[in-house]
Amino acid sequence: MTDQAYNFAYLDEATKRMIRRALLKGLAIPGYQVPFASREMPMPYGWGTGGVQVTAACLTPEDTLKVIDQGADDTTNAVSIRKFFERTAQVQTSETTAEATVIQTRHRIPEVALTEGQILVYQVPIPEPLRFLEPRESETRRMHALEEYGLMHVKLYEDIARHGAIATSYAYPVKVEGRYVMDPSPIPKFDNPKLGGNAAIQLFGAGREQRIYALPPYTDVVSLDFEDHPFDPSKADHACDLCGSEVSYLDEVITDDKGSRIFVCSDTSYCTTRQDEGHTGRLSPEGEAA
């Protein structure tokens, strides 16, 4: 079968309409998880099928698509998804955050502030922030309906009692517009402050769990915390060894069998842009810096 046998952006029009309706409801009720009849995709559940369906429903022929996984454009699954859309939607792709109109991401929000013309699509494995406290869908749905989020606060408080701090470092729950508690997908909590007040449209797709949710631009998003234990979006206390950035989220890379390690930006577009601009880090070749 040739690629021409498939529709623009792979999905058939009836499926796209169904996803599009869910996306619009999601925007109208920020943070609420809209059920949608997720389809089997040609990649496995858990590998970004929710994000891929959302992206497929949003793409126009004029879009420029960027796909990142762990902040990087070159991670294998990001490459695979980018190729899928190059093939099925013939859209332009880019690795530069500022050039992209649609960005599909797994586990990161780009370092560079997003703008009004952009859509950020998150791949979500477990959309229900209460799932690990209450495994039953019928129960968690009721808890959201009644705005009954005591269990979540109890869990966070138990963390503080045991560890002296909240022991959640990624997929850190947030409250949206003072109403719905939402799972921001497994982004590091370092990225949480970028969820609120963002100029871009943020869309979340969970394929296997059949849920879509959304944050319109400039939505009020607050990471859950306590007055005496305020939310702390911490990161490794280092600068990037390649571009010297002290404010970006870092990957720790083990470089030999003696446990030597270096720190580099997880956002590869941000890091290479900075290096091109002449910024240097501890490991930059000497004399090359501008």
Binding site: K16, R20, L24
Partner: peptide, 19 residues
């Protein structure tokens, strides 16, 4: 062109609902 036209029209609906 149903696929392309509806994609563009949807983006107008999406932008409208988002803003």
């Amino acid at each position: 062109n149903p696929a392309q036209d509806s994609a563009r029209a949807f983006r107008a609906c999406l932008d409208a609902m988002a803003r």
